[in-house]
Nucleic acid binder design. Structure first.
Lengths: 346, 346
DNA sequence: CTGAAAGCGCTTACAG
DNA sequence: CTGAAAGCGCTTACAG
């Protein structure tokens, strides 16, 4: 039992180690009879390759690193792992998650990256890296793939959301519902990191301007980088307070994430602002709470995005040609109960 | 740049490979001066160990496998990964998720397990394994830890929920609220696998009997193993239909999971059964949707459970002594808006 | 189509 | 405290 090597199989099948190696890996130039005998022997012995030995000899680790800021158990990150797993596991790769919780650890990881021989590719999720780190990625011999990155820069391939088109959809919906004053609500990030979702407020404003909204009818809430990491609840309160005292209060809000939108709606209702009668609220993500909260939102599919990123990784590792290295993924509006026509003026 | 080995560091520091190995791994019997020189050299060269080479030579893979049925992006599983990561990563272990989506793949994995030299321990999550597989686990040289397993059998260590005490809490609450007829709602599993949560209906009935409820005042819904994998929605419908036509309809329900409870509540309300006025509903998990849905529920903390399991794994791998190999974790009732005193009879 | 030999980059006794 | 040597279990040219 256990601890058996390719050599045991070789003896059992009456061939050399090299032949076992070739046969079991499905390489050609092996006599069909021989191969069958070897496969039988391996099966009988319950032989499994030592990945370490294979890797050391071949120079391929058969591992793909998924780099996260923040927990594995967030909606986006857990979906990213799932999607990556679905395409990488069948290809024989292990996926290994790596969290860099703060700037110091991130710096240290990137410091060591050029010498890192423990992974065949890196999928970098939702990071906003500075120029220096992006250049470092670009100079790496191993492929790096950006998932939900801010831009394509520095990555060998990337999969990103089309934030502009998403925000344009939202603004068009609000315009068709007759809303004249719009707000965008940024979520305070508890992290030191800036995520790609921070791009949305800019996209939102730009889209609204395209749709003939004037600057005076557009407002961005919650983007206070002044006082540091506020709690989620405090941030909600702060936005609601601003809204309550707003002389030109918007009648519709786009919120950076579903989570924040749902908390915001609860607080608004608590203060007598009805949703959607007085205020339309649109979330972003269509994560698991959106249907529960009956939230109108912009749907994205992080599992599929991760599948795409993983397929890019596979192609890069195999040095296959790729039609598109940088993929922009579309979103879709999901209409639910938190959006309605604008209240009549007064 | 890159591709450098321990030998390069040895040359740079003017010592032998073995000394570099010892120094960089923090072993004793190295002259402080020599060690400093080596560490400097390693730093300067951006040297990183090849985990494959280390593993092959030492016989330790520095990898821990997390075995899942179902997706990585479920609430419980993603929390389990997070908790395991938190304790295993600082110890130098990679965590590698492995999904066995169906019985066939699970069988194949277990078939190969005895010859598997690619992991130092296995954490088995939420599985209900048959006797044969449990025996196989018991015979393995590498440690196996059950997380949310049905029982302790076959595992070297385990971390489980105290389902009995959880159900007793729920029943006591319902009794104190004056509910005379209680129901337990099982969730149809889309999987071939039976999860540990399936034990709860038995615990519930037993607890209620302990609290002097008669068998005729207790009812279990949705446990139809007859017609195969029903959809989530169909299952909700079926439970509601049974409730509507029930001549002795319970006034309180314990539901196997929060997800199912929330869907059930929506359907009940749609059919005019008010929650909590007409019907008290208690969920299980206290997952992310529970606060959003204002759901009274039984709280569990899978991240912490996974941390405990991972610590057990570390101790087992290090052959340290353990005070308790099998840990039973408590739950707590979270009172929210879906529970209320029983409606007056009539 | 098959085998002998070298080598992947470490760790681990064993001397000294 | 340090170094030379063997070995971990494979893969990969290279002969044949």
């Amino acid at each position: 039992m256990g601890r058996l090597t390719i050599h045991d199989v070789a003896i059992e099948a009456g061939v050399s180690d090299s032949t076992v190696s070739r046969a079991l890996r499905g390489l050609d130039r092996v006599n069909p009879h021989t191969r069958a005998r070897i496969e039988d022997a391996a099966e009988r012995l319950h032989f499994t390759f030592s990945r370490n030995a294979s890797s050391l000899a071949s120079g391929r680790t058969m591992r793909v690193t998924l780099l996260f800021a923040g927990g594995i158990n967030t909606w986006f990150n857990s979906c990213a792992m799932q999607g990556a797993y679905e395409v990488l596991a069948p290809e024989g790769y292990d996926i290994v998650p790596l969290i860099t919780p703060d700037q110091a650890e991130q710096d240290r990881y990137f410091e060591m990256l050029p010498g890192n021989r423990n992974t065949d590719a890196i999928i970098v999720t939702s990071f906003d890296l500075d120029k220096q780190k992006l250049e470092l990625l670009g100079g790496l011999t191993m492929p790096t793939i950006g998932l939900d990155s801010r831009s394509d820069d520095g990555y060998d391939a990337s999969v990103r959301l089309d934030e502009n088109s998403a925000m344009l959809d939202a603004v068009r919906l609000l315009r068709s519902l007759g809303h004249h004053r719009l707000g965008y609500v940024e979520q305070p990030s508890s992290h030191e990191f800036k995520f790609s979702s921070k791009l949305r407020s800019q996209s939102f404003i730009a889209s609204a301007r395209t749709c003939d909204y004037g600057q005076e009818d557009l407002e961005v809430f919650g983007g206070g980088h002044d006082s540091m990491p506020r709690s989620f609840d405090d941030a909600v309160s702060s936005v609601v307070a601003t809204l309550l005292s707003d002389s030109r209060r918007p009648t519709a809000l786009c919120v950076e994430t579903d989570d924040f939108a749902v908390a915001l709606i609860a607080r608004l209702r608590h203060f007598g602002i009805r949703v959607p009668e007085d205020m339309t609220v649109i979330g972003f993500d269509d994560s698991r709470i959106a249907p529960v909260a009956d939230l109108t939102t912009i749907h994205q599919d992080p599992v599929e995005m991760a599948r795409l990123a993983a397929r890019q990784a596979v192609k890069l590792m195999k040095h296959e040609t790729m039609d598109r290295r940088h993929i922009l993924v579309g979103t879709s509006m999901i209409l639910r109960g938190t959006s309605a026509p604008a209240p009549s003026e007064g």
